[in-house]
Simulated assay, not measured.
Amino acid sequence: MKLNYLKVSALVLTTLMVLATSCSKDDVDNEAAQEVSSLPRDVLNKVRELDLNPEAFEVKHAVYPDGTKIPVVLTDDIAMEKSRFLKIPSDNNGLAKQYQTEFLIDTDVHEEVNIIVYTGPTIFDGDTPIVTGLSEAAQQGVRDAVENWNSVWGSRLVLRAEFTTATTFDPDFFETFIVVNSSLEGFGGFADFPDENGNPGNFVQISPNSSTFADRVPDAIEHLITHELGHAIGFRHTDWNSRQSCVDLGLEPEPSVEENPPARIFGTLPSIPGIIEQEDSIMNACFNADTTTGELNFFDENGLRSLYRGF
């Protein structure tokens, strides 16, 4: 992947199944699928239960500086904590499908969202690196990203970043942890979404290349982390019904529509392929490092005000 064509990831919670490739159970030979699939049996069974295609899924790990690994189920660039994935109800017709995530942060409980940024040395599992700290340039990208969201007038949401070399952390204090996940490739990352209890997304994971090249493309790393924090506070992709930003950059061959169209956030433009498209939205699925400013556009700001109105 060329450095100036960047594809960002989203860790989708209870709407994961509507974003994946659908596959009728009648079209899948379950016994054959079990033989060829590398998925754990419980994940494979859940994928079948949800009428999804097992070939589109894999299991990887989100990681923490203390060596903790959390299994996540991925399909393309969409991921979900395995334990949550296994709890998805088979009858999902009643779930909300929105630009925003199903759940938002409860700001009465979380007056500030505490973002812990790991800046320490590489942590190994035997001889295999699993997590490392953000570079100084990437740390600046976090500061810029936090400022992007905090500077929106009319929002009651407040983010606060703390930088640490400590490998252990107080689970009652931190809300969102940002690390470099050594297993990720290219320039990108993924992030957790707010949960059903009103907590912000638990983690943001970026790739080693994102951290290494941050000093060369400061606006791009600002864009990437602003985007991933956008997911952690409750945004979905702006171009959900076309992924046109990815097509324009040659990352995807043709437009695609995420099934079961979501309701847009009040105060933002609808996404109408070929008619209304926001090329500069921070929450588009893909972006160009050569042209991004790393800043929110007018409708990104309106979206935040709508979700977390402070007046």
Rank of each mutant, 00 (worst) to 15 (best):
M1H: 12
K7I: 10
V8K: 03
L13V: 03
L19R: 02
L19K: 02
T21I: 15
C23T: 13
V28P: 01
A32E: 07
L39S: 00
V43N: 03
E49P: 11
L52Q: 01
E58M: 10
A62Q: 10
V63G: 02
Y64G: 12
T68V: 06
V73Y: 08
I78P: 04
K82Y: 04
F85K: 08
L86D: 01
I88D: 00
P89D: 08
S90T: 04
G94S: 09
Q98H: 07
T101N: 03
E102P: 02
V117W: 10
P121S: 07
T122S: 07
F124P: 14
D127P: 05
A137W: 11
A137F: 14
Q140E: 10
G141V: 02
V146K: 13
E147C: 06
E147I: 08
E147Y: 14
N150I: 04
R156S: 03
L159H: 03
A161H: 07
D172V: 15
F174H: 07
T176N: 13
V179I: 10
S182L: 04
S183W: 03
E185C: 09
G186Q: 03
F187Q: 08
F187M: 08
G188L: 05
F190K: 01
A191I: 05
P194D: 02
E196P: 02
G198W: 01
G198S: 02
N199A: 12
N199I: 00
P200G: 12
S207L: 09
R216H: 04
D219I: 00
A220W: 01
A220D: 01
I221A: 01
I225Q: 14
A232H: 04
I233H: 00
R236Y: 09
T238V: 12
W240L: 15
Q244W: 14
C246K: 09
V247W: 14
L249N: 07
L251I: 13
A263P: 13
I265K: 00
L269M: 13
P273V: 08
E279K: 06
D280Q: 04
S281Q: 12
N284G: 02
C286M: 05
T291G: 00
L296D: 13
F298D: 15
L307G: 11
Y308S: 14
